[in-house]
Amino acid sequence: MACGMGAGALWGLVFLAPELVGDFRPLQLAVGRYLAYGIISAMLIAPRWRALVGTLRRRDWLALVWLSLAGNTLYYILLSTAVQDVGIATTSLVIGFLPVAVTIIGARDRDAVPLARLAPSLLLCAAGAICIGWQALGRPASANSDRELVGFICAIGALVAWTAFAVGNARALKRLDRVSVHDWNLLTGVVTGAQAVALLPLSAAVDPIQHAVSAWVQFGAVSIAVAVAASILGNALWNRMSRLLPMTMVGQMILFETLFALLYAFMWERRLPSPLEVAAFALVVASVISCITAHRSRQALRHALA
C-alpha cells in the first residue's frame, strides 16, 4: 500500500506537465518524456542486458510492446490532450473511474474478493470521482465546446488505455517471477523509448521546430523530470505493489494518483479546495479503507476455515 501511495504521488505530477509546457503539443510531450525514459532505462539496464534478455520469451516481448503502447505512449498523448482541452479537474474525474474499471476486471481473477463485498468501496470511489469533476462539468458552455468535447473523449480513451495496462501489467508481473519489478520497468522504458523514436518524424511533421531556445530548455527539463519521477521511480513502486497485492486492491491504489493530481493543481492555482473537492478527498479515503477492510475480512475467513 505504501508503494501504491508513493506511485500515486509521483504520477500525479504528469497532470501538471501539460500546463508547465502548454506551448507544446501532446505528441511532443509524449515523445520528450519517453525519449528521456528510454535513454535513462537503457543506461541503467545495460550491465544486465545480455543475461536479462536470455530469460525473456517471445510472449514477454509482445507484452512489453503493447503494455508500453497502452500504458505509456497512447495514454500520455490522450491524457495531455485532455488536460490541455478540458483542464485537470474534468480529466481527473474521468481517470478517477480507473479503480472501478480495474477492480471489476480483477474480480474475475482466482481467489479475488467478490464484487458484492467490494460494492461499498466502489460506490464511495464513484461518488468521490463525481465530486472531483462536478464543478467542471457543471460550468456554463464556452466558445470552445468542440475542443472540450474532443478533450473529454480523449480522457475516456486514456481511461480505457490505462485500464488495459494496469490489468495486463499486474498479470505479467505475477507470471514473470524470474524478472525483478525494477528490471521489468526498465525493459518497459527501453521499448517505450523505441516507440518514441519511431514517433519523432510524425511529431516533427505535425509541429515543426519553431519554439524559442528557452522554451525548449524548459521542455527538456520537464520531460526529464517527469521521466525520472513518474516513469522510473513511480513505475518501480507501482510494479512492486502490483506483485504484492491482489488485482482488486491494485485498482483502489490508483485513487492516490487522482488525489495527488488535485493537490498539485491546488498548489499550481494557489487556492484552497472547494467543499465538493474536500468531500471528494474524504470519499476517496473512505473507499480505500473500505476496500482494505473487505480484503482483511476475506483473509480472516480463510484463516478461520483453515
Score class of each variant (00 low, 15 high):
Asp146Thr: 09
Asn239Arg: 00
Leu305Tyr: 05
Gly12Ala: 13
Leu20Lys: 01
Asn72Ile: 11
Ala112Ile: 13
Ile224Thr: 12
Asn72Phe: 14
Ala9Glu: 02
Ile292Cys: 03
Ser242Gly: 02
Leu186Asp: 05
Ala126Asp: 02
Tyr34Arg: 12
Gln210Pro: 00
Val102Pro: 08
Leu122Gln: 03
Ala286Tyr: 09
Ala230Thr: 11
Ile224Glu: 06
Trp61Val: 14
Leu237Cys: 14
Asn72Thr: 08
Gly133His: 12
Ala236Cys: 00
Leu10Ala: 10
Arg59Pro: 02
Asn144Arg: 13
Ser223Lys: 07
Val228Tyr: 13
Thr163Asp: 01
Ala158Trp: 01
Ala136Thr: 00
Ser242Ile: 10
Ser287Thr: 04
Ala196Gln: 09
Ala17Gly: 14
Gly128Thr: 07
Ile153Ser: 13
Arg147Val: 08
Val284Pro: 00
Gln28Ile: 02
Leu301Glu: 13
Asp23Phe: 01
Leu262His: 10
Trp162Pro: 01
Thr73Lys: 01
Arg175Ala: 10
Thr163Lys: 04
Ser203Gln: 11
Tyr75Asn: 09
Glu269Val: 06
Ala2His: 10
Ser231Pro: 07
Ser203Asp: 12
Phe15Trp: 08
Phe266Gln: 12
Ala42Phe: 13
Asp109Leu: 10
Val228Leu: 15
Arg33Gln: 02
Ala286Trp: 11
Leu137Pro: 06
Val197Ile: 15
Ser287His: 01
Gln252Trp: 02
Ala143Met: 10
Glu19His: 09
Asp111His: 15
Trp216Thr: 00
Tyr37His: 08
Asp60His: 10
Gly22Met: 01
Ala127Arg: 08
Leu69Phe: 15
Arg48Thr: 00
Ser41Ile: 11
Tyr37Cys: 05
Pro275Leu: 06
Leu56His: 03
Arg108Tyr: 09
Ser68Met: 09
Ala2Cys: 02
Ala225Val: 14
His295Met: 11
Lys174Glu: 09
Gly157Met: 08
Val250His: 03
Arg175Glu: 08
Val21Tyr: 07
Ala282Trp: 06
Val228Lys: 10
Leu137Ser: 09
Gly234Asp: 10
Leu122Met: 08
Arg139Met: 12
Val226Cys: 07
Ala9His: 04
Ala101Cys: 14
His303Ala: 10
Ile40Asn: 02
Tyr75Leu: 06
Leu56Cys: 10
Leu199Asn: 04
Val14Asp: 06
Val150Asp: 07
Val94Pro: 03
Met1Ser: 08
Val86Ser: 00
Val213Trp: 10
Val14Ile: 14
Trp11Tyr: 11
Val190Ser: 04
Trp49Glu: 03
Leu305Met: 11
Ala70Val: 14
Cys131Asn: 03
Ile104Asn: 06
